[in-house]
Amino acid sequence: MEEKISLGDYQKLLNTAIDLGHFLLEAGAETYRVEESIQRVLYAYGIKHVDVFAITNSITVTITMADDTCFTRLRRIYSRGTNYQMIEDLNNLSRYICIYRPPVEEFRQRLKEIYHKKGYPFWMMVVAFAGVGFSFTLFFGGNLRDALVATFAGALIRVVIQGMERVHTNGFFINLINSLLVTLIALLAVRYQIADHSDRIIIGTLMSLVPGVAVTNAMRDIIAGDLVAGTMKGLEALLVALALALGTGMALVVMGGL
């Protein structure tokens, strides 16, 4: 297939490919996956050289054509979460593109569809957070009464997170407040004999805030050789853990002194 692609099309292609990388990074993919996806997609369209540099909050792509024309595009990424459904869909999309090489317009259309696909609704996230509290409290050896308090606390922290994210609070403060809240609930529940083990409630409920994805991705990035991105993610995980410890510690001190 040797159809001529105009320069404008190359720019459109570059923009679409960097969108793909952007959504991947926002959904919590590893850095090497972002770089590799962009490269594979662009090479599939017959570009001679593709250079990609991605870290946790920015992507830079330069494409070089056979006649030495080149374009560079930088994209800054602000928000990050974890959305495996989206990573899976984007992964399938880039695989599809590498095999069939559809027109750029179709590529963009499919990307748009994936981006606007609805995830789980908010109430379901609340239920999931409650479920994490419930099952991890039982897992760590709490009894049923502990688990019920943890269910309530888990649902509450999801609601608090939602409220705080609406006013763009930073992650450190969100985790601090949430761990403070959970510890207070657990200690009060034990004081008024609603539950029996405050430690198990706290551990179980705070599992939903533990930075498991950040740690795993940090390690996978470091293995793949992306030391900058890996270190950034590792630091982020460390800060979250620190915030959780500080919040819990503060509540323990306050309640111990009452």
């Binding site: 495996y84 479920g131 994490v132 599992m207």
Partner: peptide, 20 residues
């Protein structure tokens, strides 16, 4: 069983698709 339940809840938190 508790680990299994916890993973179900976490899958939803991480937006893992139903099939997975």
């Amino acid at each position: 069983l508790y680990a299994f339940l916890a993973c179900i809840a976490f899958s939803i938190v991480y937006h893992v698709g139903w099939k997975r």
